[in-house]
Design a protein around this nucleic acid. Structure first.
Lengths: 196, 196
DNA sequence: TGTACATCAGTGAACGCGCGTTCACTGATGTAC
DNA sequence: TGTACATCAGTGAACGCGCGTTCACTGATGTAC
């Protein structure tokens, strides 16, 4: 059953990182045990430490991976220019995204837990979020993306907080209205930047 | 040592709820064990179930209490009218609030974890957040507060997400710029509502 | 080509520990007579 | 006023369980001769 070679091991590691990313988003970091994470990847708990130094190591790695995937699959694939950001905002603050935590944004799923993590994880998060943000900033100000970094970051904060709030509310109708208001707010934030 | 009477027991219960609220915000819900929560209140673990049916029961109670306290101590005590909201936004998105999680906003500290909780806790949260929000809405539109509910809710989402993001970043300078941009965004959101 | 050995990804049981919860008990307070 | 008993807030040990982590072992694959 067990195949051999560096290639195979790297593939297994990748599988653990991806399934763990999904599990963390669904059940939280503290809510996901090593045995469960390994079972998700089709392995037993003992193999974990051949791939990662500790659970913290996996947490940092999985968060970095989630942000990278988001930059590549969501931000980079959106329509070019400002229209792309509008597309991103509408997709982010949609009922589908609200109801699909496992495939959704790691910021919305984990931000407050990340804030409680150690330096290593928070550094991995910071590096990852900057990559994500630069994709948005380069659409906001193509000639000078770094000037738009903070604005892009604040847009992410708005979106993540709004989605978290929509997920926490038991009143579906109110949550829906909140998401619509969030789109309005997000787009207004963009327009305020045209003269920057 | 142990005093007697319904009065005393209610006082003890109150102390548990308050210290637990602080501990949850600092270490997370999953990160706070019953023994630790009771030790915080100066008691031993065994007494817990004389006050609460389960940990979930305390979680729901503490979250409701936190939101009520925020409505009373922050929102209700701010300056009257729109100036009060501006005061709230600036205080919320300040470095002091970023660095004081224990005394800070329960939304910023716990929102994504609340989203993963059961119906009972999320219902308690929803009820509590509506009280908090109504205090803001009645400043936004004194003649018809319910029309401004969603807008007030979206302002809370913006503020909570921005503060979480500022807490998660290891780059203090960037976090500071984010908070300042968050204030700009929050105030712009208010102004967009004047013609409503 | 065949055989002996080295490599190593993954298994599964075990470690000490803290979790949420239960319960027999303590001892101070309040009540009855 | 004094004594006997009832009440009950809180103690602290114990329950089964899952946590993160360790490690002796398995068995398929690759290498040497």
């Amino acid at each position: 059953m067990v195949r051999y070679g560096k290639e195979h091991k790297a593939e297994t590691r990748r599988r653990i990182i991806e399934t763990a990313g999904r599990r963390f988003k669904q059940d939280g970091i503290d809510g996901s045990g090593v045995s469960t994470l390994m079972k998700d990847a089709g392995l037993t708990n003992g193999a974990f430490y051949a791939h990662f130094a500790s659970k913290d190591d996996l947490v940092a790695t999985a968060i970095a991976d989630q942000l990278k995937a988001q930059a590549e699959n969501v931000v980079a694939r959106a329509m070019p220019g400002r229209a792309g950001i509008e597309q991103i905002v509408r997709g982010y603050l949609s009922p589908q995204h609200r109801d699909d935590i496992g495939d959704g944004c790691p910021n919305a799923a984990l931000l407050d837990e990340i804030g409680r993590c150690g330096d290593m994880t928070r550094q991995a998060y910071t590096d990852g979020v900057l990559i994500l943000i630069d994709g948005i900033a380069s659409r906001l100000a193509p000639e000078d993306p770094s000037s738009a970094r903070v604005k892009a970051l604040s847009l992410l904060g708005l979106m993540a907080g709004t989605l978290q709030l929509a997920r926490a509310l038991t009143d579906r109708q109110l949550a829906h209205e909140l998401l619509e208001q969030g789109v309005v707010n997000g787009l207004a934030l963009l327009d305020a930047g045209l003269g920057m």
